[in-house]
Computed example of a mutant assay.
Amino acid sequence: MTASVQHGTTTIGVDFLLGFVSEREHGNILHPVLGRGDVEVTFKAAGLRKGTLKFLCDTYEKAAALDAEHAKIGSFQLLDDEVPPPGVSMTYVPAGRITVELDQTQYVVSVDFQEVLP
């Protein structure tokens, strides 16, 4: 799936969204009760998605631009250039590592993310 990353007025097209792994941590809190085999539960909704995006770039210049843009302050939008699998578009902030690796003749840029509200 081709995609674009938008940050402010800058849009960077990537050749392929290679990977999208996300998880949501549920907010439920379990309270063990002394002398009982069960627990009391405080119910809370799950948070927003967090995980890792992997972008495939055919040139070093494109990978370097994606890396440099993610190093800046602000939120980003993952935009789908094609009909995506449902739920991939989002607003996010980098939250962790940004890595660039050479995979034979192409570059893979991985960005740990935390989804945020637009």
Score class of each variant (00 low, 15 high):
31 H>W: 11
20 F>A: 02
85 P>V: 12
112 D>C: 05
50 K>C: 03
40 E>V: 15
67 D>C: 06
116 V>C: 01
116 V>Q: 02
90 M>S: 05
72 K>L: 12
100 V>I: 10
118 P>R: 10
102 L>I: 11
43 F>C: 05
23 E>N: 15
60 Y>T: 04
108 V>T: 07
71 A>R: 10
82 E>I: 14
67 D>M: 10
74 G>S: 09
93 V>K: 02
27 G>N: 11
8 G>Q: 05
37 G>W: 13
29 I>L: 15
74 G>Q: 08
23 E>M: 10
88 V>P: 00
92 Y>K: 02
92 Y>C: 02
42 T>M: 13
116 V>K: 02
12 I>M: 03
83 V>H: 10
99 T>V: 08
79 L>T: 08
84 P>F: 06
34 L>V: 15
73 I>M: 05
81 D>Q: 12
56 L>R: 06
9 T>N: 11
23 E>G: 14
99 T>S: 09
104 Q>E: 07
118 P>Q: 06
86 P>Y: 15
20 F>M: 04
15 D>I: 06
87 G>I: 08
98 I>Q: 03
43 F>Y: 12
23 E>V: 14
86 P>E: 11
51 G>W: 02
111 V>Y: 01
4 S>H: 09
90 M>A: 07
45 A>K: 15
47 G>N: 09
61 E>D: 11
33 V>M: 09
25 E>R: 14
63 A>I: 03
94 P>K: 08
37 G>V: 10
102 L>W: 06
23 E>K: 15
17 L>I: 05
84 P>N: 10
89 S>Q: 12
42 T>F: 14
18 L>R: 11
56 L>P: 01
35 G>C: 11
75 S>P: 01
42 T>H: 13
98 I>T: 07
77 Q>H: 12
113 F>T: 02
59 T>M: 06
17 L>S: 01
52 T>H: 03
71 A>S: 09
6 Q>S: 08
104 Q>I: 13
58 D>S: 12
59 T>A: 06
19 G>R: 14
106 Q>A: 14
40 E>P: 00
78 L>P: 00
75 S>L: 07
18 L>V: 04
105 T>M: 08
113 F>G: 00
21 V>W: 06
56 L>T: 04
77 Q>M: 09
26 H>V: 15
41 V>K: 12
12 I>T: 03
